[in-house]
Amino acid sequence: MDMQGHWYPVSLAHSVEPGSAAGVRLDGRELVVWRDGEGGAHVWEDRCPHRGMRLSLGFVREGRLGCLYHGWEFGADGQCSHIPAHPDSQVPKAIRTRPYPKEVRFGMIWTALSAEPPPPLPEDAAEITPVASLYLDCAAAAALSALRASRLPPFRAGDHDAGTVFETVAPTLFRLSAGSESILVGLQAVAAERTALHIVIEGPGVVYAGQGQSHFLRWAQELRHRIETPSLNSANRPGEAP
């Protein structure tokens, strides 16, 4: 898959809490996703410009991301604003992190490996209920073909005979619908043979929180089991009797 010029989801939005940081990988590159105190999301290269320490091991303090190693702190613009060993010095402008484009949409945090943001993602009008992030030992193309072949069992009664419709919403975002219900799956190419699927329900929490989420988590775990168990890769699809 051509990695340039597309948005990629790197986390479910609620998985990175305000005031915290997490490491993620995209096409083998290590990135840090963090949220400032107001919940604003940021995606940077996961390297402190000082000694190369992973910034995702650090801490968020007063809207800045601090490095665990020597406490250098970086503001939302990526600029280093504080060096504890030289508290009174003006920090040179050249000391900064490398920021990547970022977007929060469809209940996921998105980034791109290009310097400029790719064309905008579609609008997300519907309410979203998060389900899970699945991490798979396979290439993105293999995960996508397993997803295409899967059957989505509806959560609510009355939709049992509905067939599954697969739809490409954006180059890395797919919709599976069954009757009146649908889920969105964002595709993260973690590395050559590692892929993450970020799964959300297109529907409000009042309907899907709890049992609805568990229902689609079981579907996702079954999909993963199929991918991880090559002997199952025959004609049977998730949701069908063997």
Partner: peptide, 14 residues
Amino acid sequence: IDHDEYPALRRWSR
């Protein structure tokens, strides 16, 4: 083993 792929454990750990 990085913490990247365990979002629920990350939040619990905090």
